[in-house]
Amino acid sequence: KCGQINISAPVVRLGDPVTASCTISQNCSHLDPEPQILWRLGKEQEQPGQRQQRLPDGTWKSTITLPYLNHTHTFLSCCVQWGNHPQILDQAELQAGYPPAVPSNLSCFMNLTTNSLTCQWEPGPNTYLPTTFILKSFKSRGNCQTQEDSVFDCVPEKRHSYCSIPRKQLLLYQNMVIWVRAENALGVRESPQLCLDPVDVVKLEPPTLWALEPSPQAAPPQPHCLCFGWEPWKPSIYMDQECELRHRPQQEGASWAQVAPLPSSIHQYELCGLLPATVYALQMRCIRSPLPGYWSSWSPSLELRTTE
């Protein structure tokens, strides 16, 4: 091999210096007795190194220091002048960027449909380097001071800042420790750890509302009242929940009026005190209660009309 490059580090911080040396072996035939070694960075013009010396064993060595590397990805070539054209004898790949930032805003929610725990985070500014993020977790208990099981690595898809831990890796109704690890060639950063029970971060879907058909047995609807049926989101039926109802007339500028709480065990409701002969939009949402959880979003509107 005629030429051999050695560089201080293939990956440096953006703006940091890079030092490289190129050694030309003496048995590199066809060369001048005193070859002039040149360096080419990317597509820039060739330049000589700061120092070129002949070593005792007859090889020639050139050393160059680039004061600051401001290319995130480039190539450094070692060349010699030969005839009319510089000849490339070796090439080194250089990358520059930043170490990862500490991943932030880690949050999780439990999906009862897929039975997985999805966590998302802020990856931080662009590092210009290949950076991997891994969502790490282990089963714990109490205030998360003990590790009850091995660490599970959830590797997100490329460029995704979220990952879903499958049911098999979850311990429901006990606390788990969850955090994010970011790593690239310039360093490793880990997010603060979360200590949570997956079931306490269940994301409920809204309940379902429907109009109740008037039946001969039931009393005729009151002029100022509306009756409707509803039921919590089916996958969460085993959870005690608290639900809220809001309603507003279909009139310009009308605002929502809220009715709470509706216990999740009674699935029919009569709403009174309304304007007669008016169309109302009704919406409901629920939250796991008294145990912790997140509010569902409001349900789609059920539109009902009060009688004359």
Binding site: Y173, Y238, L291
Partner: peptide, 16 residues
């Protein structure tokens, strides 16, 4: 009480 509430919920989940 939180243990009892969680356990009741787990029983209902498993029963379902």
């Amino acid at each position: 009480r939180s243990f009892l509430l969680k356990s009741l919920e787990q029983v209902r989940k498993i029963q379902a």
